[in-house]
Every structure is written in structure tokens, then in C-alpha cells.
Design a binder for these strands. Structure first.
Length: 166
DNA sequence: ACGCGGATGGCCT
DNA sequence: GGCCATCCGCGTA
């Protein structure tokens, strides 16, 4: 998933940091608690979006990676912002750090629990507009999905706290 | 750059 | 009742 582009509506970013949650045997994985109403999307087919609410104020988005009923997923931890910079900046309250954290990137892309269960393995996915769309935003068909481009740089380097392609 | 505490609410035992 | 796959502001270096 590293290098894939996560897009939601007009905002998108390249995935540069992930975290794996292996399954029911992994105590840090939500699947360890068994199948509950909250973790239902986690046990869906691979490619399912599992979005959960944390610390009373933030959303985090995962991509299910295991077979149906298993409960294994990858948390999206950080993106390199690509499209919709102004929109993301507005959603981030004018701050410059847009997507360098799992909660921040969901804020910037407008991802909430309503996206639960949506396919993440093929774009675009059409959903109904919801309250995460800001006033004045020209968004007709909010969508969420992973895309793959042919012209991505093959290698990335960490220079300071930035990702660069050369 | 790093560490601390507060905000905040749902989930599971 | 206690735990969290977090973020932010403010403090100290």
C-alpha cells in the first residue's frame, strides 16, 4: 500500500506510512476483541475500509487485508498531500501539517465512520455527500479509494522529516 | 527536538 | 471503570 494514492472527494495524498494489525492473535488489533458491532467492517473482505473513532474526537482509516471473517488490516498513518491542498488546509483549521498522522489525514480528507465498509481497492467509489463537506466546497460526488499511477518515482528518501523522490 | 497534560467519547470487561 | 492504533498547546532544552 505504500506509494498508493488515497483519495476522498477532491483531496488526495500518497501513502507514506502504514501500520499492520495482523489479526485476532495480535493483541493490538481490534480483531482481538472478537466480532462486535464496531469491528464488523474489519471482518469484511480485503479492500474494505475500516474507520473507527478514537479518543473521543478523531477518526482513523484502515484497509482490510485478510480474508472475510479474519480481521486483519493496515492503518494509514501518513500521506504526502497531493490534490486539494486548500481544501485540506481549511479542514485543518489553517494549519500547515495536513496529513502527517492518522487522525489528521482523516480530518484533511473528510473521512469519517460513514465511509465504513466502502471498498478501498479500486476507485472511484461514489457515496452521498455528508456533513464532512465544508460550506463552499464544490464537491458533487465525494469518493474514497486507492489508485495506482504508472509514473510514480520508484524510490523515496527520507531527508530530515520530508519524503523526497531524489 | 522532546516531554507533558488536557480534551473527549465510545468500547469492552 | 478503565483503556485507547490521537492531537494540540505550552513548557523546557
Amino acid at each position: 500500500m505504500l506509494g498508493a494514492v488515497l483519495e476522498c472527494g477532491r483531496a488526495s495524498g500518497r501513502i507514506v506510512e502504514t501500520e499492520a494489525y495482523l489479526g485476532p492473535h495480535d493483541p493490538a488489533c481490534h480483531a482481538a476483541a472478537g466480532v462486535t458491532e464496531r469491528t464488523l467492517p474489519l471482518h469484511g473482505p480485503p479492500g474494505t475500509a475500516y474507520v473507527y473513532f478514537i479518543y473521543g474526537m478523531y477518526w482513523c482509516v484502515n484497509c482490510v487485508t485478510g480474508p472475510v471473517g479474519y480481521g486483519s488490516a493496515v492503518l494509514i498513518r501518513a500521506l504526502e498531500p497531493l490534490d486539494g491542498l486548500a481544501l485540506m488546509r481549511r479542514r485543518r483549521g489553517g494549519r500547515a501539517d495536513l496529513t502527517n498522522g492518522p487522525g489528521k489525514l482523516c480530518l484533511a480528507l473528510g473521512i469519517t465512520g460513514k465511509m465504513n465498509g466502502l471498498p478501498l481497492d479500486r476507485p472511484p467509489i461514489i457515496v452521498r455527500p455528508d456533513d464532512t463537506v465544508d460550506d463552499g466546497d464544490v464537491i458533487v460526488t465525494p469518493r474514497i479509494g486507492l489508485t495506482k499511477a504508472a509514473d510514480w518515482p520508484q524510490r523515496y528518501y527520507v531527508r530530515g522529516n520530508r519524503w523526497v523522490s531524489k
